[in-house]
Amino acid sequence: MEYLLIVISAVFVNNIVLSQFLGICSFLGVSKKVETAVGMTGAVMFVLVLSTLATYLLMKSVLEPLGLEYLRTISFILVIAALVQMVEIALKKVSPPLYQALGIYLPLITTNCAVLGVAILTIQKDFNLLQGVLFAFSHALGFGLAMISFSGMREHLEYAEIPARMKGVPISLILAGLLSMAFMGFAGIGA
């Protein structure tokens, strides 16, 4: 039950993108096509879970015992940067087309605040390891849900007639606002 609550809360109620505003850069940047959105989701999901696991272990087994909590931000970002490098190298070997598609956005996962944000949130919430990994995974799922549904809508937006000044970013933001409003309907589920 407790675990189910973590999942529902992370995917729907406190959606990482639409209500916590993490990972907005890739949410707006790579969502023009469903295809790239799916790829980006996969990459973020992989990095998010892996980095939460790594930072959690780092925090609990090194920083906290040594009283070095103040190095949290700096060590987390380095761990994440190293992980992203590894994912990039792996992807280049395993799936060159996907690597081509995601292009410049892969290195940008390092500066995707969703990854660092969830790593820090996991520490702040006082989770155990299993809960933490589940928490990270469900946030990644929430990211994917928001990202893919948003990109689906944006594909349709291309054929809509929109006032010239609203074209591009403004209408996308308003669309995101409407999507976020829809997700507000999930609030209160945990109560």
């Binding site: 209500s19 505003f21 609203m166 970013v169 403004p170 209408i171 606002g177 409003m181 507000m184």
Partner: peptide
């Protein structure tokens, strides 16, 4: 609330 952030920024940029 969160939706308002997106909408307000959208209109500001427009």
């Amino acid at each position: 609330m969160p939706p308002g952030a997106f909408i307000a920024l959208g209109y500001l940029i427009a």
